[in-house]
Every structure is written in C-alpha cells, then in structure tokens.
Simulated assay, not measured.
Amino acid sequence: MTPRELVGVAEVPGGPPLRLFKRGADFMIVLDRNELMSTRMSGSEVALGTMTCDRLGGRAAPRLLIGGYGMGFTLRAVLGRLGPDAQVVVAELVPGIIEWARGPMAALTDGCLDDPRVTVDMGDVAEAIRSGSGSYDAILLDVDNGPDGLTRPANDGIYTARGLAAAKRALRPGGVLAVWSAGPDAAFARRLAQAGFAVDEVRVKARDNGKGASHVIWFASV
C-alpha cells in the first residue's frame, strides 16, 4: 500500500489542529484519528450543492452562503449549477484550509476561489449568518461533522434553536437552509421543524459512484 504523507497542519481557532495527508493522488483532512473528508468521498458534498440549487428553482441573481470550504466540492457543484448573476459567499474559519486549496490542492480547486461570483469570508459562518438578515436565498452548512460536531465546541451553536432562528432570519422568502451531516440526528430534525422550517431529510451516498456509507442532508425551507 502507498504510504500516507503528511502535507500540512492547520490550526483551528478554539479546537485541535487539522492535518492534511496525501496518499498517491488522494488527499485526506484528518482530526486526531478521524478522517473528516477525502477526495475519494465527495458524493454527498456535491449533492449538498446541486440539490440545494435545484430547490431554488432558477430564481434570478441568487445569493448563497456556504459555511465551510472543506475541499471545495460543494462550492464547485454550486458554481456549475448557477448562472453568471449569482453571488456565493464562502465563510471559512481556518486559514490553513484556504492555503491548502491554493497550494497543494490547487489542481483540485480548479480556480473556483477566483471565480468572480465568489467572495471568501475568513471568519465564523455563525457571524455571517447573524449579520445577514434577509440576505441569502440559501445557506449551505458543512461545518464540523454535522450537528454532532467533532472539530470545535463553538460550532454547536449554529445547530441550536437560537442558531436556527438566526439562519431563518438570514434567509429570503422561499429560501433554503441545507445542512450536511455524517449521520442521522432525530433531535436536530425536530429542532428544524420547531424553528418553523419545512424539512426534507435526504440520505445520499458518500461516494460519487453511489457506493459506500450514506450521509444525511436536511433541506429546510422557509
């Protein structure tokens, strides 16, 4: 087996560091012993982007907020679905993630961060949500590992009743809050409904070939 090579370490404000590994042509972002994301498993991250755009119904000049760049699969999926009048804000808390995207993973990034429709906001997506009243047609959250987070305790706030209320205020009429998770979470699904969202829970395969484990995406509409 090809050995795994450590490419870099990124500090996480208020949490343990992330490590980027490479094995052959594949990259992995790892927290302690947990593989958070990998170029081998992009299917659900792509689905987060494409299925959200499909739910917007082709509205003119949509404005989207993506929480967490990750490896950029969701961003590239969104850009591939949206027209030239769209605006996409990417909120990324960890500078090292963007440095990796522009450095060792530049070929994978394929220029998406330099797309004229994209603005990169280096900061907490929770703040972007709180300050964005009525600003977004869709908010896509792929933060931590979902509502049951691993990376940073402060991330849990965006999934609380208060955090969901802020997300609802940040959405335009008919907007969509899309939340990615590594697995189901009945308590979180109930909080979405209690916050006044119409909730559609979808299971999607982790791999783009339709194989492997299933992840969950909640599409919560206002």
Results as ranks from 00 to 15, higher is better:
A77I: 06
V118N: 13
V90T: 03
D208S: 11
R172E: 03
A60E: 08
A61K: 15
E11G: 13
E92K: 00
P95H: 04
G132D: 00
V7R: 03
W100Q: 01
T119H: 14
N209F: 10
L31P: 06
G43T: 05
V94W: 01
A206K: 02
L93Y: 03
V216C: 14
G14M: 03
A213E: 11
G123R: 09
G70S: 10
L93M: 08
L56R: 03
S181P: 03
D185V: 07
V199K: 02
L82R: 11
P104C: 02
D208G: 07
V202K: 06
G212L: 14
L192G: 04
R207F: 05
A86F: 07
P173F: 07
R81I: 05
K205P: 04
D142N: 04
G134Y: 10
F73P: 08
A161P: 12
D26V: 12
V222P: 11
G132P: 00
A170K: 00
D200W: 09
A10V: 05
V120R: 07
D185N: 14
G174H: 11
C112H: 02
A165T: 15
E201D: 08
T151R: 01
R59K: 11
G146T: 00
G80I: 14
P184Y: 15
R162Y: 15
R81G: 03
G49T: 05
R4A: 10
G68Q: 05
E127I: 13
